[in-house]
């Protein structure tokens, strides 16, 4: 029997792309997507369920659909997206409900995959150049986003301890860049202005969105448990990121740069969320050898990721954005999937 997979956050980049990847896998019998909004990518056979952001109905869904795998991508790793309270609701409460559903007695679930971020390592001057998965965090937890992600990871760790028969996977992604995903760094690079802290030129890692989806798919398909860092090979300086993308560096004062950035952020010219400030000073590097030892192969290096993003950006600038974006239409989807008028026997 093939696998039955539940993907959360179907309306986000992560969930949508992951569902697409799972659809292409013949071993996956059923893909069920949950989201607070309609999906933004075309899907062939994924069933869509609308849910509130804390996923309170998840328990019933898991029991009703008997899914054996949950891919939890609906975690906010960008504090610009949502206000602080919503962030807590989505990340912490949402994960709590999800783990409660997955760990209920007689659960059909065998594997839980959780997307996390390398923000859990923080960034400080006392950091090692490369964080391994077990390296403890040095920097004090200063931002809401980091606090919520750390809380999520501790919930997941407790869950894994309480349910030793379940396979639990946590992927910690470095800064993601790509043509679809919007992050503070990509939003800045699209406007060709990259805020920097004067006198600092930290080294960063990036991961391409294709590699993001491929890694999520890889650990799901091969049933790999554990905590893994996901980042492209190599590091490159902040200034080089700007140079490759054709952006200008905007030096902010080394003393309280956020105060100086605040008016520009308010005007919508740049994005400089609190979790970005230490990164803009000291950077961050994570050791990715553990996932590579599991046989995963990256397509992009860190520099290659930035280059490919810059190309996608050039295209977007020339063609004026993606005008032919997909729009999910519930009626049309229902018609194609369930109407007796549609001839489906051609496939089989």
């Amino acid at each position: 029997m093939g696998r039955r997979v539940l993907v959360t956050g179907l309306d986000t980049f992560w969930g949508g792309r992951m569902a697409q990847a799972l659809e292409a896998d013949p071993d996956v019998d059923m893909v069920l997507g949950m989201g607070t909004h309609e999906p933004k990518v075309p899907l062939e056979r994924t069933e869509f369920v609308r849910a509130d952001q804390t996923y309170s109905i998840l328990n019933r869904i898991v029991r009703a659909t008997q899914v054996d795998t949950i891919v939890h991508t609906f975690l906010v790793t960008n504090s610009e997206e949502v206000p602080g309270r919503t962030l807590h609701e989505i990340n912490v409460i949402g994960t709590m409900n999800l783990l409660a559903a997955a760990g209920s007695p007689g659960t059909p679930v065998e594997q839980v995959v959780v997307k996390s971020s390398t923000h859990v390592y923080g960034s400080s001057h006392k950091d090692p150049a490369w964080f391994r998965e077990e390296t403890p965090r040095v920097a004090p937890v200063g931002t809401r986003l980091e606090r919520s992600l750390i809380e999520v990871e501790s919930l997941v760790r407790d869950f894994a301890e309480d349910n030793p028969s379940l396979l639990v996977t946590v992927l910690r992604f470095a800064h993601v860049l790509g043509s679809d995903i919007v992050t503070p760094i990509s939003a800045n690079l699209r406007r060709r202005v990259l805020p920097a802290v004067f006198g600092f030129d930290p080294l960063l890692q990036f991961v391409e969105e294709d590699d993001v989806v491929r890694s999520l798919e890889y650990v799901t398909r091969n049933r790999i448990g554990g905590i893994y860092n996901v980042a492209g090979a190599g590091k490159l300086p902040w200034s080089e990121v700007a140079a490759i993308s054709g952006a200008h560096l905007l030096p902010l004062s080394p003393v309280s740069p956020r105060t100086f950035a605040a008016p520009l952020c308010r005007l919508g010219l740049i994005q400089f969320p609190p979790e970005m400030e230490p990164v803009a000073r000291f950077g961050r590097g994570v050791d990715t050898s553990r996932l590579c030892e599991q046989g995963f192969e990256y397509r992009y290096t860190s520099a290659g990721t930035v280059e490919s993003f810059a190309r996608a950006n050039n295209l977007r600038r020339s063609t004026g954005g993606a005008s032919n974006a997909y729009r999910y239409q519930q009626d049309v989807e229902l018609f194609f999937r369930h109407s007796p008028a549609v001839v489906r026997s051609l496939d089989s």
Partner: peptide
């Protein structure tokens, strides 16, 4: 292919 790197800064800086 264009080499994405613009400088020769290594992983240690």
């Amino acid at each position: 292919l264009r080499d994405p790197r613009r400088s020769d800064v290594d992983e240690w800086g």
